[in-house]
């Protein structure tokens, strides 16, 4: 059995990577005629949906590992993620956190099948492996685990709530779920359609378009007029599963245009305002807290690895 070492340097060292970038659909065949040919801003419609679940997850690299193998050192990471939903009961005017789940993973590179020692933490670490050998691949593996868990939360929450997920949808099951994407690294629309995005007022959306490669419907919503912002500040892109009937998606799109501005954040409180939604920000805070104190987690890891070496 190869020996595993917990590295002393900072777990987050050298990982300035947003794996969602890789997940975000690239430019594909976009069809802007799915809802209407009349491309003008459309007003949102609040249909009074009683419960909205905002789904999100956070993750953290707890430690970097090195597997001391005769063939050479093998990299690995220990990471924790937390997923959950902030469920807004609109009739009761109350929000609460639900569907919380914590996952801890030891990810080993190069397809190694070592089992990570038992760590005195709840929940304990599961071991997984990835054929990749680069550090980014390790984090991507952890991220995928988190996204999958988010998908489960979204599916569970969708049974009694309208789901708004932070970021692109992972599981494209035909449930009333909408992904809300804050950044716009890829432009999907032809230039003349993009002017419609710029022309959106608050609580307005663009008509639907489809990204066929990814089997998603998508549309843009303006959350708020941002003072001193550019034409695209205050805009989020939403997407829904391509398996849903178009009429259903239109209803969801109208709803998001009306509802999302209600939970947009204020620029003096959140640097990512208004796109970083208030329930999402609060949920992330809570989830980070639930992952456990990083110092304690790190210490537990070192203890566990040390014990195995001693035995």
């Amino acid at each position: 059995m190869a020996r595993i070492f917990v590295e002393g340097w900072s777990p987050e060292y050298g990982a300035p990577l947003d794996p969602d970038e890789a997940l975000a659909p690239a430019e594909g065949s976009v069809d802007t005629s799915v809802e209407t040919e009349d491309w003008i801003p459309r007003d949102g419609v609040d249909d009074g949906v009683p419960r909205i679940a905002f789904v999100d997850g956070v993750r953290r690299v707890d430690a970097r590992l090195t597997l001391d193998d005769p063939s050479g050192p093998v990299a690995g990471i220990c990471g924790t993620f937390a997923v959950g939903a902030a469920v807004w009961d609109r009739e009761a005017c109350r929000s609460s956190i639900a569907h919380e789940r914590i996952g801890r993973w030891a990810v080993l590179a190069g397809g190694r099948s070592e089992i990570f020692p038992v760590v005195a933490l709840e929940p304990p670490y599961d071991t997984t492996t990835t054929p990749d050998t680069d550090p980014a691949g390790l984090i991507r593996t952890l991220h995928t685990k988190m996204r999958t868990a988010e998908g489960h939360v979204a599916t569970a929450a969708a049974t009694d709530s309208f789901v708004i997920a932070d970021g692109p949808l992972n599981e494209l099951a035909p449930v009333p779920a909408v992904g809300s994407i804050k950044s716009h690294r890829v432009t999907y629309l032809p230039p003349e359609r993009n002017t419609v995005v710029a022309a959106l007022g608050p609580r307005q959306r663009t008509p639907l378009f489809t990204i066929s490669e990814y089997r998603r419907y998508s549309w843009y919503v303006r959350l708020a007029d941002v003072r001193g912002g550019h034409a695209w500040s205050g805009i989020v892109r939403c997407e829904a599963s391509g398996q849903l009937p178009a009429a259903e998606v239109i209803r969801l799109a109208d709803r998001t245009a009306a509802v999302l501005p209600l939970v947009a954040s204020e620029s003096h409180l959140d640097p990512r305002a208004p796109q970083n939604l208030v329930p999402i920000a609060a949920l992330e805070r809570q989830l980070r807290h639930r992952m456990g104190e990083p110092g304690l987690v790190y210490r537990a890891l070192r203890e566990a690895v040390h014990e195995r070496m001693a035995s």
Binding site: A86, V87, D89, C93, R94, E266, V278, A282
Partner: peptide, 20 residues
């Protein structure tokens, strides 16, 4: 618990958009 800013009180108690 969970309110960071004083105005969060409105978001929690009146609008209900913030879990706390």
């Amino acid at each position: 618990e969970g309110a960071q800013y004083e105005s969060d009180t409105h978001r929690i108690a009146e609008l209900g958009i913030m879990p706390a």
